[in-house]
């Protein structure tokens, strides 16, 4: 290449360079925005039930656990309970590996009883800092 002397750089090549620069600047921009708004707070796991379906092994409750807090949680223990008044009819647990901040994970629990006939609550009972 050297012996051919200086090569002319076409507009397409500069266009690609511009595109690359835009991507890198964009990435840095989002990260900087994140850094500026970053605060070290506790994770906040909120579970919402997606659907309940009847399988051969019982009633499968699928839910999404979203971490709305400011930091990532690991080994989150989710406790799902079927209650009637103050009485706990049935409970199930599932551990989520980790949920990054502002992200969510899907999981499921299986009950013998139909959750439709009772009050279903799903909440996080413990977590570990990753």
């Amino acid at each position: 290449m050297a012996e051919e002397g200086p090569r002319e750089i076409g507009w397409l090549e500069w266009g690609v360079a511009g595109l690359g620069a835009a991507i890198v600047v964009g990435v840095l921009g989002v990260l900087t925005h994140e850094a500026l708004t970053y605060e070290d707070g506790p994770p906040a796991i909120v579970a919402t039930v997606d659907d309940v379906s009847r399988g051969s092994g019982g009633y499968v409750v699928r839910f999404t656990a979203k971490n709305e807090g400011a930091s990532t949680a690991a080994e989150i223990l989710m406790l799902a309970e079927l209650k009637q008044g103050d009485e706990v009819l049935e409970s199930a647990e599932v551990t989520l590996d980790y949920v990054a901040r502002k992200s969510s994970k899907q999981a499921g629990v299986v009950f013998v009883r139909d959750p439709a006939g009772a009050e279903l609550t799903i909440r996080a009972t413990s977590y570990r800092k990753p």
Partner: peptide, 22 residues
């Protein structure tokens, strides 16, 4: 290689290469 300066090389190869990697 082509009579190009640091910023030209950086913009056309390194920055584009990194964007491509992403």
């Amino acid at each position: 290689p082509e009579g190009a300066g640091f910023w030209s090389l950086f913009a056309r190869y390194t920055v584009v290469g990194y964007a491509l990697s992403l």
